[in-house]
């Protein structure tokens, strides 16, 4: 069991890190946006320093790009190419297969977070740090990863690979612009600002933003993220088709 999990996880990590488009989506685009919007004053941020607003937003974007977009696209093509159908005829348990994907996501996100924090610190980021804020950040990242993975797998398990590719990229763009990652939600038209707390990426951005600037947490963000983290994976499990 452990031997299988280690072998499958290693294979997943190797394939993820060798996929050029994944690296572009998960590492280069977030870092590029962080550097660009920090150095070029094209948006008005609620914080005195742009880096204090952008870094938690870009960390949210990293989760979105890995757990939702990259996972959904790769799983959609695995389904389309018959990989999942073949695996279904082997004794590889589905839980081991999914655990290996989770391990791969966690490893990728760790790399992303280390890279983002390193670049942000070099750009002058000086976050509020305490044990409770760190614990909150880790919890929020885990909940958001589960929620985004659930959404990504739901799409991958129902749509044709090419349609899923378009849907995942479209969702990435919409969530990037509407979740307070690079554009403050206060800039969004009336109801959209409030609605951003009800979507996982918006709730995550707000939690990370508050945790890293020493402000108190709002309950709605944590409740919203928790509901998504439970509901989305359940929906994916109930609707996923391997063929």
């Amino acid at each position: 069991m452990m031997k299988t999990l280690i072998a499958q996880s290693a294979a997943e990590i190797r394939m993820t890190l060798r996929r050029g488009e994944t690296l572009l989506l998960t590492v280069l685009i977030p870092l590029g946006l962080l550097v660009f919007f920090t150095e070029v004053a094209v948006i008005a941020t609620p914080d005195a320093r742009r880096i204090d607003f952008l870094t938690p937003g870009i960390m949210s974007l990293a989760v979105l790009s890995t757990s939702l977009v990259a996972l959904s696209i790769s799983t959609g093509f695995e389904r389309s190419y018959g990989v999942l159908k073949r695996l279904r005829t082997t004794p590889l348990p589905m839980r081991t297969f999914i655990t290996a994907k989770i391990v791969s996501i966690v490893v990728t996100e760790l790399i992303q977070i280390v890279a983002i924090v390193t670049v942000a610190v070099l750009l002058g980021w000086n976050p509020h740090t305490s044990a409770s804020s760190l614990a909150l950040i880790v919890l929020a990242l885990l909940l958001a990863s589960a929620a985004c993975a659930g959404i990504g797998l739901f799409l991958a398990g129902r749509l044709a690979a090419e349609i899923n590719l378009a849907a995942a990229n479209g969702l990435y763009l919409i969530l990037l612009l509407s979740s307070g990652m690079v554009i403050p939600t206060t800039s969004l038209p009336g109801p959209f600002s409030a609605l951003s707390h009800l979507i996982p990426s918006g709730a995550l951005s707000d939690i990370l933003h508050r945790a890293t600037t020493g402000r108190s947490l709002t309950v709605i963000d944590l409740v919203s993220l928790s509901v998504w983290a439970i509901a989305a994976p359940l929906l994916a499990v109930r609707t996923f088709r391997v063929d």
Binding site: M15, R19, E78, Y81, G82, V83, K85, R86, T89, T90
Partner: peptide, 18 residues
């Protein structure tokens, strides 16, 4: 059943880079 059975399906596939 899967532990005792080997199957080769028409549309079974493998990860492209492997």
């Amino acid at each position: 059943v899967t532990a005792l059975t080997g199957a080769m399906l028409q549309d079974g596939g493998v990860w492209a880079p492997m």
